[in-house]
Nucleic acid binder design. Structure first.
Lengths: 196, 196
DNA sequence: GCGGATTTAGCACAGTCGTGCTAACGTCCC
DNA sequence: GGGACGTTAGCACGACTGTGCTAAATCCGC
């Protein structure tokens, strides 16, 4: 039944196989043969869907972004800005298994993007959009001058990436409760002037 | 002249060759042959100094920690806690070429540590020490209860790692000035109650 | 049922990998 | 000088890599 499942669906399945291989053994093991075996295909078959390994990895990396954006677009966002920020930004933290998988795979791809030009383009695109989101929430939550806004955006953005990174590296230490507590505390400080 | 340079010095040189290969082409290219070529040795010779590739990579990863700790131990630290924190914590941010190199290599090794048990041990050791340092500075700079202290420590630690990560991924966006400004702003908020 | 197109499987090639092993080389001590 | 030893170089092996290519299997419209 070759035509029943359309091409995009097959690509999506392959991308998930890439994810599984990466989480298990790292990107360096995401070879054409290993991914094909993980997906239950022959290497030759895989190469009719992705004609090159680079394509396969790029698609799998983009899939991470797509899944995050789809989830963010689908959730109910409160009207109140502070609560809205918390709900949306929590979607970027690995608080459940789904987000944990996305995060681990993203970390692996980001590292490889340091030396792979194609993946770097994907990473830069995501980075720019995340930075835009950080700026958006800072504008919404605070009333600061331009350069203060800039510093706060970078701080929020870096904090979230740092939290996600810690969760990937040390899931035992960076528990979901802890991540949420830190984010909530940071947002509290941003919105209200109160400290200590 | 085989005996002139002692064993540790040779190992240190090899570690630096590993760094160069990693920064240029990524950890996956840090093979015995590539590192040997980078160091001007034959692969067979390298394996008399590091009998296995795993040993070589572990040593090169530990070298990152050693260099950071040596630098931190060597700097002049102000008496005033707020200034001291700024000076010390800046040593963890990639503000110059030396720290940029350490940071890039560390990011690469950290990613590989996700799937390499030996490197994971090195990474966990460093992580625990950094977390201890974060807790130390929070205690010194604030007067909080235990669980608030815990949240602030994780926040400071994650922020620094996030800043360093951003600097590695997007050196054009995360400039040294920007990194320092964010850190300074965060420390300001920690020490003084003032906001906005 | 059948032709034709598409999907699948698998081989071939040239390259790299980690590592075991041997042979030449250098220097040092006696 | 000569023997011994630490160092260096390099080959060999089996495994894996990405990719080009060819043959088989499968399904579709008719």
């Amino acid at each position: 039944m070759p035509k029943i499942v359309d091409r995009n669906e097959r690509r999506r399945e392959l991308a998930e196989a890439v994810w599984r291989v990466i989480r298990q053994d790292g990107v360096e093991q995401a070879s054409v043969r290993n991914v094909a075996r993980e997906a239950g295909l022959s290497a030759g078959s895989l190469r009719h869907i992705f004609s090159t390994q680079s394509e396969l990895l790029q698609f799998a990396m983009r899939t991470v972004i797509d899944r995050v954006e789809t989830r963010v677009a689908g959730i109910a966002v409160p009207d109140e800005p502070r609560a809205a920020a918390q709900v949306v930004l929590e979607q970027l933290l690995p608080l459940d298994e789904e987000r944990r998988a996305e995060n681990e795979v993203w970390v692996a791809f980001s590292a490889r993007a340091m030396v792979d030009d194609h993946l770097r383009a994907v990473r830069d695109d995501a980075y720019d959009r995340l930075r835009g989101a950080a700026e958006h929430w800072i504008r919404l939550l605070t009333d600061l001058g331009p350069e203060e806004q800039d510093v706060e955006s970078e701080r929020l953005f870096s904090l979230i990436d740092g939290l996600a990174l810690h969760a990937a590296l040390r899931p035992d230490a960076a528990t979901p409760e802890r991540l949420k507590a830190v984010l909530a505390h940071h947002l509290d400080q941003l919105t209200q002037g109160g400290r200590r």
